[in-house]
Design a protein around this nucleic acid. Sequence first.
DNA 1: CTGTTAGCGCCTTCAG
DNA 2: CTGAAGGCGCTAACAG
Lengths: 334, 334
Amino acid sequence: MSIKIEDVAREAGVSTATVSRVLAGKPYVSAELRRRVLEAARTLNYRPSRVARSLRVQRSSIIGLIISDIQNPFFTSIVRAVEDVAQQQQYPVFLCNSDEDSEKEATYVELMLAEQVAGLIVAPTAHSNNLYRKLVAMQMPVVAIDRRVSGVAMDMVVCDNVRAAREVVSHLVESGYRRIAAVLSALEISTGAERYQGYVEALTSHGLAVQAELVRTGSPRTPNGYAMTMDLFQQSPPPDAIFTGNNLLTVGALHAIHDLGLRIPEDIGFAAFDEMDWMFLVKPALTVVKQPTYEMGRRAAELLLQRIADPTRPAQIVTLQPTIKLRESSRRLI
Amino acid sequence: MSIKIEDVAREAGVSTATVSRVLAGKPYVSAELRRRVLEAARTLNYRPSRVARSLRVQRSSIIGLIISDIQNPFFTSIVRAVEDVAQQQQYPVFLCNSDEDSEKEATYVELMLAEQVAGLIVAPTAHSNNLYRKLVAMQMPVVAIDRRVSGVAMDMVVCDNVRAAREVVSHLVESGYRRIAAVLSALEISTGAERYQGYVEALTSHGLAVQAELVRTGSPRTPNGYAMTMDLFQQSPPPDAIFTGNNLLTVGALHAIHDLGLRIPEDIGFAAFDEMDWMFLVKPALTVVKQPTYEMGRRAAELLLQRIADPTRPAQIVTLQPTIKLRESSRRLI
DNA sequence: CTGTTAGCGCCTTCAG
DNA sequence: CTGAAGGCGCTAACAG
């Protein structure tokens, strides 16, 4: 059906091995033959079968990328970055949505293994340590992004969540807020746990108590952010400030606050993890943590390519610092 | 290294052919052998090599998806849909970003062909007709999404853009606006052209002239929307309403209007194509076209799977209707 | 430097 | 109904 290496070899009057060598850029081929092969390949419009090649070398040139929500701007930015660096090396990217579901995640990993991917970048869901322990054990290059995998020596790219959360919550306290609620993703996800820890550290270091009724956790989806925030305002007295530890929860919380008719920062303080590009509408009023998402994706892809090239390199953990934008004006002191 | 079909055959005491038949769900295998094979496969934890399979059958079970901007919510929703239906059939999805660049697009198509993808879903860039004509000629299953490919008989999933644009612009006219500007993507992209046509139809059918100085086109990116809108307001008199024909341009235009200190709809009318989920902040003031993105992705994936199953089926064009939400209150009559 | 050859793991005739 | 055997297109020894 399509042109094979043999056709090129015949056209150029050489053997298939020579064609293979030339196209792989291997040395030890005379300039003359190289020229003839290149020309033959071009005139025949030869396109090497990556499938056959993968079978032969027992590894494809495909990067697998498993994230938990393709519609979350946080992840799309990562996808974009991974794409960009992969493309430079002619690696196509398999994209999969785990949907925060560790079974789907495992299924996709299986699929990737069956496709012999060269390596895997994953935003792990909760409770998937064993899966990655296995992958590492079988020498599959894999790097975790955004979330840590505890107890497994593997490459990771994460943010300094504790510090970021501590700083923005501290800023709320120092702005005079006292009943600061937290809207977080599940604490089984490392990011949720770390941001909670930062929240706790900020409160306690300012002599404030952590009140369980002011903390809500749930899966990181916009409707959840809305519901949790609404729920928080059922109490009396209600919170006087909100800290949201995830960008989708942030959207939900803002929506709730909008529907409650509250204004920021007059009626309520707000500090948020955010990745949206439309904050110009509310920007001046918010204290915001912005993660370096593109950078995270880029670093993850680079780590992966490195490991593919050298599977024995010791595992690295790259920790990046989010950008923090404090709300400009300070205000009432209780 | 890993378990192969031969190992399973030995374990089950049958031939590899039988194993292959059982695992492919083919008939004509005795219940007894089938049972033994299944058991052997399970105990060995056999994972068939999809690469070897692809080489043998000369086609992989991979769906290629080429879109122009992974960070655009319009496309992420499509990606999500394609993913969902592909996953049901155990098709992994190759995702590529053409970045609105037809060279990148062509490169990616090449890559996909080399990986022997089963089929391709593409949001075509401008000027790529020949590429798709070729694919169709070589029997590669391919469906265009969002944008039309003119002069090529292929499957497409598009929206009724002319109608949607005409309706929302008509609504602006009927609300009393007279200097209605248009902020559109390049007219070489079918969606841009169609929305421009709707705009023209709305104006002329209401006896208004189309004024070239009120029309701006450019590549569909947020900063462009900002710049084009700012530019429109350099004129005197300035426009009294804006129609944006793309969701990213909408964001940019809103940002510009915000920076200009204008209020919607008091100072300026606004009708927009939009896919953002945060419109609650400005929603009541806008007239909005929302495309059925998930549905589009789903239909495209279904068309593709159909065509993979039956390459001879005649090409279909699926046209979906966007949802239109008119701004509730009407207002001044000039 | 170049060519010959033996598989990579699977599916699919073709015999039995 | 089942097994034996020949490739799919390519690369990596191994000879020359």
